[in-house]
């Protein structure tokens, strides 16, 4: 039984010009101790699906799902009070911009101790001891002094460590990291990714890594789910995904990496991600896909089997059929 189980999750936003479907029928499982990466470009719904899980979307969003359960508890039919006991406790999240997700008016010590008081009911002394312990765990030098610092007095990398310390304060079973290193320099990024992976090893928590950086995925993740325009188009273990992508979108995305370039000019994907008004009727990638035919444009393809990476495609690449023909 997996730690997190999502079936057929959809999120619609009510906008001035009608509803916009940001997440479209996404299934997702995360096991204890596993690192799952969700990759996609901007507008692929990768963050929104996890924000829906956390209950952090504004009132304009309508969330529908067949199933959304965490650790055996049904999140869909749970009242908000019970949900609040789980979120921030067993289920934690860190965000992209450490500077703007910390409150500038309070010291980082105050902010980290808040969740210890709320969820664990620690007294002042225990809170202080645990906060120092957490700062040491995430590699913040001189923790005693740093607890009294305000976010603006620390660098981006240090603030991200504070965010991670806050997220793991209550020993969560699942940590969702939404682009945790996008705002950081590469040498700091390497430190933060190592930290997240080592925390996973120590605590055995599940880790969901939302990112757009294929390099981060290749080096950190174990299983990868690729999203495009709100749909999950493919899911594979990381080595297989990079070796034999099955969905044409994944294949095209990997080809477009400058690192894999063999020629002076890079392979490109024509067109842009569909928006609110030009959403295709059939396969969402069909207007940009070089394999698309009339069938692709008319009917949305259902996900294929596990051997083909659950690709939502009628003409998967790197399949036996394709090789034979």
């Amino acid at each position: 039984m997996s730690l997190l189980r999502i079936r057929n999750l959809s999120v619609d936003f009510a906008t001035a010009s009608g509803t916009f479907r940001a997440v479209d029928g996404v299934d997702q499982d995360v096991d204890t101790g596993e690192i799952l990466a969700i990759v996609g470009e901007s507008g692929s719904g990768k963050s929104v699906s996890m924000l829906a899980l956390m209950g952090l979307l504004p009132w304009t969003a309508t969330i529908t799902a067949d199933e959304m359960s965490f650790d055996g508890k049904d999140l869909l039919r749970m009242d908000t009070r019970a949900k609040r006991r789980i979120i921030g406790n067993d289920l934690a999240m860190i965000f992209q911009e450490p500077m703007s997700s910390l409150n500038p008016c309070f010291t980082v010590g105050w902010q980290i101790k808040e969740s210890l008081r709320h969820h664990l009911g620690f007294d002042r002394r225990a809170r202080h001891a645990r906060a120092i312990e957490l700062f040491e765990q995430v590699g913040i030098p001189d923790p005693e002094k740093r607890l009294a610092a305000f976010p603006h007095q620390m660098s981006g990398g240090m603030n991200q460590r504070v965010m991670i310390a806050m997220a793991i304060a209550c020993k969560p079973k699942l940590l969702i990291a939404d682009e945790p290193t996008t705002a950081l320099d590469v040498t700091i990024q390497a430190q933060i990714l190592d930290l997240l992976a080592s925390l996973r090893d120590e605590t055995g928590m599940g880790l969901v890594l939302i990112t757009h950086d294929m390099g981060v995925v290749a080096e950190t993740a174990e299983r990868v789910s690729v999203q495009y325009a709100g749909q999950k188009v493919e899911e594979q273990p990381v080595v297989d995904l990079f070796a034999t992508p099955h969905h044409p979108y994944t294949a095209a995305l990997l080809d477009a990496l400058p690192e894999r370039a063999t020629d002076k000019f890079l392979p490109t994907i024509p067109g842009v991600v569909p928006g609110q008004f030009d959403r295709p009727k059939g396969c969402l990638f069909s207007p940009r896909c070089k394999f698309s035919d009339a069938k692709c444009k008319a009917t949305p393809p259902p996900p294929l089997g596990a051997d083909l990476g659950f690709a939502r495609c009628f003409h998967p690449v790197n399949s036996d059929e394709r090789i034979a023909s």
Binding site: A190, Q191, G215, V238, V239, R260
Partner: peptide, 22 residues
């Protein structure tokens, strides 16, 4: 810097030089 840049080859053997501090 080169060793810290993530490469898109999973499981490739590589030695990452860890820089301490910022």
């Amino acid at each position: 810097l080169l060793s810290a840049t993530p490469r898109t080859t999973p499981n490739a053997a590589k030695e990452r030089i860890k820089l301490i501090g910022e």
